[in-house]
Design a protein around this nucleic acid. Structure first.
Lengths: 122, 122
DNA sequence: TTGATATTCAACTCCGAGGTTGAACGATGC
DNA sequence: GCATCGTTCAACCTCGGAGTTGAATATCAA
């Protein structure tokens, strides 16, 4: 908890529509900060701060060329997120399968008993 | 931006190690609040708040049974995250492929010219 | 009813996120 | 040199996240 790990930073960075839009834009290619900020209804400074959050999460890389800062998307942290989610999915999918089996078991058992008024919800 | 959409809520909820641990625990089966809070070095109230964040993101479902609140993992929002990430991946993977092609093109061209001092960085 | 258990609600602190404005800094162009 | 462009830094505001403690609510058990 005292170590804000990479997943934390990455997920936090992704949990904002502006930043996701920035990433989407960057996935189309390197872009200058000003150019990147142009479509947003907020100050350049605000966008600059969003960029710093993305940098902290290692989701964008900055390359200075003269006075221009060129930003590009570095997707590696997203892989970590994907890996974590896959691991989670593996966990609960197995369990949901077991639950399904159990429910079917119950249904077969209920078929030989008086039916229940309320159906299986959701 | 004024509509904090589902992805926002979900990613924000996931961007905390305590909450991810809670989900991990819940993926092993329904759990009472107190039982859930026991391993964490924080007050029951703090855990209760985390649970509310997870509920807001529809990542957990609460079922009241007497005085006990039984929580379970509802993974659907994670699918939305996965879908968004896949879409992103489709975007930039295509572009990275194009970039790779370009770099190889340049390498071939450079092979016939005097070599460059600084190598291809990262 | 009384008392214990399970959980939330309410009020508070602290801190950082997200936004603003204004100034500073570094590179470019004349 | 000087003005301008691209970008950040600094200071400030507001809001909500994350934690605390203490009281309230609801259920169970006697």
């Amino acid at each position: 908890m005292r170590t804000p790990n990479h997943l934390d930073q990455t997920l936090l960075a992704l949990a904002d529509p502006t930043r996701r839009a920035i990433l989407q834009r960057l996935s189309a290619g390197e872009t200058r900060v000003t150019e990147l900020a142009e479509p947003f209804a907020m100050s350049l400074n605000a966008v600059s701060k969003h960029i710093r959050v993305l940098e902290r999460a290692h989701l964008v890389h900055r390359r200075r060329e003269g006075r221009e800062h060129l930003l590009s998307f570095t997707p590696k942290p997203m892989d970590d997120v994907a890996r974590w989610m896959d691991a989670q999915r593996a966990n609960w999918s197995a369990r949901l399968q077991a639950l399904d089996d159990l429910l079917q078991e119950e249904d077969r058992a209920a078929a030989s008993a008086p039916p229940d008024k309320k159906g299986r919800t959701r």
